[in-house]
Design a binder for these strands. Structure first.
Length: 519
RNA sequence: GCGCCCGUAGCUCAAUUGGAUAGAGCAUCAGUUUCCUAAACUGGGGGUUGGGUGUUCGAUUCACCCCGGGCGCACCA
């Protein structure tokens, strides 16, 4: 990976200058091309520490870089203004990377940055009381892409959907379905949506199974599949909840009041104390969730990730308080809080509550704009930002949707390669690429070069939108290259186009989006 | 009221987690096709990054205070 190589050269420069390397310096792509392919703040950081003029230190470092650049990656080094060290790469390095891509193929962009860490990623976990809505769709897509990112960087990921098949909600669901069938009024707090009359099954279990099958089929339509579906009822059957409460009791962090058992969470950082066991002897959802997360740790994972909607964020304090007091490694427990999706039809916001009659399901959205577009849109923004999703707009613009832009670049490439009869990557290995020096060729090669670093970064930050951004950028660079450089009849360019095809396909694969060969 | 999150071009969003002259798409204006897919490309206009103070070589990013919006504050999940 390019950044690693640059960093390692800079590290050896520090050693050669007799500087103790104990500070983190950055290697980034500068904002403008004139400033090089990569730039580092190394001289600024160390200048301050050593009380030296950063610009002079940058000068010293620059001179050493070319000297210690054993692989001849670097063509030129500059030092500038506050003390940046700007590095320009040799075209031969870019050409070699392009060559490597053809060989790596599907493995291009994968790495072992995740150190084979065993990760449990839990997401969606919608109640089995109705169809999935658009908000669930966002978590489904984001969770699925994060899982793919972690796998691509060498983590062992298991995905899980937690099913709350016990408690008030499912009781009300059953009551609502039965009331609807008898044409009597839905009980207070019940479910009044139209879908209720579609629910099949005589027993509660059958009704839940019906709704879960429906959810699974929508998720499948979005190419989201889970390794495990974990039922809350299992925890009850195995008496795990009582066991968890007793553990807390043994630690002296519970008390009894007005017939209920409480957790002293306030003393452990939460806003207030919380009930574990109700007056009537039934455990709360919270108690079950403690047992569930205890179970997750018991299954031997190195790292747990939960994705929650912001409507559950108030829950975070009590759960981490409980896990902490139970002696679990909370630093291995990561919660991604995502902001909600507001759905619009034109200027009209669409309600997403299951209890209202008017509700747009995820399935309907998929039917309307297509799974690829849904995945792309939901992957395209930071989960920490609100998403205003206008169906009218998404439908109207479906022809120049960003997803089509990226897919079109891939289809265009496939068309060229088909004409050239050079589809096979292997047949293009060994072709001399040294003539690839046109600015558009170079820009494309450089964009390809940055792919593996980007995947690592996106995985580390759990940022799927980095991948969609890259996809759009790569498509732009490719289209621009295509306008300027005639490809057919030029073996070196065909190899570059093929490397672009591989990268673009790997981008789309990571996003779970189709890479069409023709459009 | 308290807590968490957000506020960036007319609209939808980015900005390499403290980096250099804040970028894309849509919309808008002006161009490009006897030539590998025009679902494309090239160029123009459009910004006090909600406001203020501070921290430092450097702030969209960090701290504090306002303003505005979302979410939460159950013996629901």
């Amino acid at each position: 990976m390019a950044k690693t190589k640059i960093s390692s050269i800079l590290g050896s420069v520090l050693a050669a200058l007799g500087i103790q390397a104990d500070l983190e310096f950055r290697v980034d792509i500068p904002p403008r091309q004139e400033l090089g392919d990569y730039a580092s703040n190394i001289a600024i950081i160390y200048g301050r520490k050593l009380k030296q003029n950063p610009l002079k230190l940058a000068e010293q470092i620059s001179k050493k870089v070319t000297e210690l650049d054993k692989e001849k990656l670097v063509s030129k080094v500059e030092f500038v203004k506050p003390g940046f060290v700007n590095i320009f790469l040799n075209n031969s390095f870019l050409q070699q990377t392009t060559q490597d891509i053809l060989q790596l193929d599907h493995a291009w962009g994968t790495s072992q940055a995740g150190n084979q860490e065993r990760v449990l990623l839990e997401f969606v976990s919608a109640n089995p009381t109705g169809p999935l809505h658009v908000g669930h769709g966002r978590w489904a897509v984001v969770g699925d892409v994060i899982a793919r990112l972690l796998k691509a960087t060498g983590s062992k990921v298991k995905t899980e959907f937690y099913v709350n098949d016990v408690g008030n909600q499912v009781e009300k669901l059953e009551a609502s379905v039965k009331a609807r069938r008898q044409n009597i009024e839905i009980p207070a707090g019940g479910y009044g949506g139209e879908y209720i009359k579609e629910v099949e099954g005589e027993t509660r279990a059958e009704m839940l199974a019906f709704l879960m099958d429906q959810q699974k089929s929508v998720l499948k339509a979005l190419s989201v599949e889970f390794d495990t579906w974990f039922a809350e009822s299992e925890l009850h059957k195995q008496d795990k909840i009582r066991w968890a409460i007793e553990k807390l009791h043994g630690l002296g962090v519970t008390f009894e009041e007005s017939g209920a058992i409480w957790f002293k969470s306030q003393a452990l950082g939460d806003d207030k104390n919380r009930v574990l066991m109700r007056e009537d002897g039934r455990p709360t959802y919270f108690a079950a969730d403690i047992a569930y997360h205890l179970n997750k740790f018991e299954r031997g994972f190195d790292h747990l990730i939960d994705i929650w909607g912001t409507d559950h964020h108030g829950y975070l304090g009590r759960l981490t308080a409980a896990l902490k007091v139970l002696g679990l490694p909370v630093e291995k427990f990561e919660i991604i809080i995502g902001q909600l999706v507001t759905l619009y039809r034109g200027n009209e916001p669409v309600r997403m509550s299951k209890r209202t009659g008017e509700m747009i399901t995820l399935q309907e959205v998929i039917d309307e704009i297509g799974a690829d577009a849904v995945r792309f849109f939901f992957s395209a923004t930071d989960v920490n930002s609100h998403l205003d999703f206008d169906l009218e707009l998404a439908k109207k613009k479906s022809q120049d949707n960003p997803v089509y832009y990226v897919q079109y670049a891939h289809a265009r490439i496939c068309s060229i390669l088909k004409k050239s009869e050079m589809r096979n990557a292997k047949s293009e290995q060994g072709i001399d690429l040294s003539e690839l020096n046109h600015p558009a060729e170079r820009a494309l090669m450089f964009k390809l070069l940055t792919w593996p670093d980007l995947v690592v970064e996106a995985a580390r930050l759990r940022h799927p939108h980095r991948i969609t951004e890259y996809g759009k950028e790569l498509a732009t660079v490719f289209h621009s290259f295509y306008e300027q450089c005639r490809v057919l009849g030029n073996p070196a360019r065909l190899a570059l186009v093929n490397a672009s095809r591989i990268t673009l396909r790997n981008v789309l694969k990571l996003l779970g989006i189709n890479a069409p060969e023709a459009m």
